[in-house]
Simulated assay, not measured.
Amino acid sequence: MKTINTIIFDLGGVLIDWNPEYVFIDVFNGDRDKMHWFLKHVCTPDWNENQDAGYTLEQATKDRITLFPEYENEIGAFYGRWPEMLGGAIEGSVSILNRLRESKHYKIIALTNWSAETFPIALKKFDFLQWFEGIVVSGEEKTRKPFDDIYKLTLQRYNINPEQALFIDDNLRNIEAAQALGIRSIHFKSPEQLLVALKHFNIHLQ
């Protein structure tokens, strides 16, 4: 088995805490049942992921309002108040990222499902995003995880041998897609679990 020389990080859920509930618990005046129904049936994860693949926020909002006109204001809040969904950095993971960077043993890349229209907000907010040798943003590429083409694009763009790469993501679906392409992977659950998993792969931390 070849030695790992590249580590590919997901961002949301691994390094950045993003959650629409931060907005919609306020929108629905603390009614968690209404909030959960809305996020399951109206502004759904699948709908949001379509924007991660390059669909415009404006058109996506219009489409949803056409389907659910009674929720026009609430739907408008999804991208209208999007910055409030950024809860902050996941500090334990950022610390691990920094230790990997300082070790100078690895090429550090990010591969994220993220709208090209909202990603600049994250770039401005989180200084550690400057630490990566490169960031592949799904919305800029008009495709997203778990589709093969975004993994292959990442490998090609940054001259990565899949047999020497390690991918970290909190979404099992994305992990399985990477593994199918021969990329060893860690299904992220917490910074503490990540630290243990990295040692399992003989990753050197500064």
Score class of each variant (00 low, 15 high):
Trp114His: 15
Trp82Asn: 01
Ile90Arg: 06
Leu100Gly: 06
Val94Asn: 12
Leu86Glu: 07
Ile75Gly: 06
Gly76Asp: 00
Pro120Thr: 07
Leu86Arg: 06
Ile109Arg: 07
Ser95Pro: 00
Glu102Cys: 05
Arg81Cys: 13
Tyr106Asp: 05
Ile90Phe: 09
Thr118His: 09
Ile96Leu: 15
Arg101Pro: 00
Leu86Gly: 00
Thr112Pro: 11
Trp114Val: 04
Thr66Tyr: 07
Tyr106Ala: 05
Thr112Tyr: 10
Ala89Leu: 02
Gly92His: 04
Tyr79Met: 02
Leu86Val: 12
Asn73Pro: 04
Tyr79Gln: 00
Gly87Met: 12
Ala110Ile: 08
Trp114Thr: 02
Ile109Val: 13
Ile75Asn: 05
Val94Cys: 09
Ser115Cys: 04
Gly88Val: 11
Thr112Asn: 08
Glu84Phe: 07
Asn73Lys: 15
Trp114Gly: 05
Glu84Cys: 04
Arg99His: 07
Arg99Ile: 03
Ala77Ser: 14
Ser95Asp: 15
Glu102Trp: 01
Trp82Arg: 03
Met85His: 02
Leu97Asp: 04
Ala89Tyr: 08
Ser103Phe: 02
Pro69Asp: 01
Ile109Thr: 04
Ile108Gly: 09
Leu67Gln: 14
Glu72Asp: 10
Gly88Pro: 10
Glu72Asn: 06
Arg101Tyr: 13
Ala110Pro: 05
Glu91Arg: 10
Glu70Leu: 11
Val94Leu: 11
Tyr106His: 07
Lys107Asn: 12
Ala116Leu: 09
Ala110Phe: 09
Ile109Glu: 10
Ile108Trp: 01
Pro69Ser: 00
Arg64Phe: 01
Ala116Gln: 12
Glu70Ile: 12
Ser115Gln: 00
Leu67Cys: 04
Pro120Val: 05
Ile108Met: 00
